[in-house]
Design a binder for these strands. Structure first.
Length: 254
DNA sequence: CTGGGGAAGGGGCCC
DNA sequence: AGGGCCCCTTCCCCA
């Protein structure tokens, strides 16, 4: 799944929000910053000001259903409360509904629209796929919690629920409307508005909003980097740098 | 081109 | 069972 899967972005690619502008607004909107889960809670322009306000593109059930007819949100009762919509988890629905919104770009041929995530065998109907899934051995059958929005399967309901949050994105930033799957992801995002950087480097004066980024930074202080090219023995502070090095063609010497 | 920072995603573990 | 947190990873952008 792409990193940005279903994450609502309100600024065009290549453009970052004006954080300094947002920071100024943060003082005004601070009490509105974090709302654990409810949806559709973007303050009006008069509250946030033009710098922080984005059009009402809240990633809620209504938008989901408009984008994915028959997909996320379309089955939620009109009066259903906001927040995490997990009604989709009932075994009843999991059995009878097709998996979620197929990507238009990756839509398979009509004859194999339903593919078994286990053995990749394709079926023209969901019923055929369901029947096929039951034919798998017991050990495989134990991994029986299937996502209705995609074809991922999990061994536990908890794991499935966690995964489904990545489809429903119940945590919405009140500053910019961006939606996240988990509250702590939203908290990390809010730091981009507030400028809070609670993770400090013990070797230099730099501070980071994210622990993982601090960890990556600490590698820059290390003489021996963590990731080594098997061909030329050159070391890198990040795996991504090593991958990039390998992709661009390691010459085999340093 | 390379290295580094920033932001974000997911799985797994613990309480 | 659910939430919080940790860790790892990826992607984008910039110097």
């Amino acid at each position: 799944m792409p990193r940005s899967f279903l994450v609502k972005k309100h600024f065009s690619a290549g453009k970052k929000p004006n954080y300094s502008e947002l920071e100024r607004q943060a003082a005004v909107a601070a009490p509105l910053l974090y709302e654990p889960c409810p949806l559709a809670v973007i303050p009006p322009p008069e509250v946030l000001g033009p710098g922080a306000y984005y059009p009402p593109l809240v990633w809620d059930a209504g938008l989901l259903s408009s984008l994915f007819p028959g997909g996320p949100g379309s089955e939620a009762a009109p009066g259903a409360g906001p927040g995490l919509e997990l009604t989709a988890l009932s075994s009843e629905e999991d059995e009878g509904k097709s998996s979620g919104p197929p990507s238009p770009a990756s839509a398979p041929p009509a004859g194999e629209r339903f593919r078994c995530a286990r053995c990749a065998r394709a079926f023209s109907t969901f019923a055929g796929l369901s029947k096929h899934k039951q034919s798998h051995c017991d050990a495989q059958a134990r991994k029986s919690f299937s996502c209705k929005y995609c074809e991922k399967e999990y061994v536990s309901l908890g794991a499935l629920k966690m995964h489904i949050r990545s489809h429903t994105l119940p945590c919405v930033c009140k500053m910019c409307g961006k939606a996240f799957s988990r509250p702590w992801l939203l908290q990390g995002h809010i730091r981009t508005h507030t400028g809070e950087k609670p993770f400090s480097c013990t070797h230099c004066s730099r501070a980071f909003a994210d622990r993982s980024n601090l960890r990556a930074h600490l590698q820059t202080h290390s003489d021996v980097k963590k990731y080594q090219c098997k061909t030329c023995s050159r070391t890198f502070s990040r795996m991504s740098l090593l991958h990039k090095h390998e992709e661009t063609g390691c010459s085999g010497s340093r």
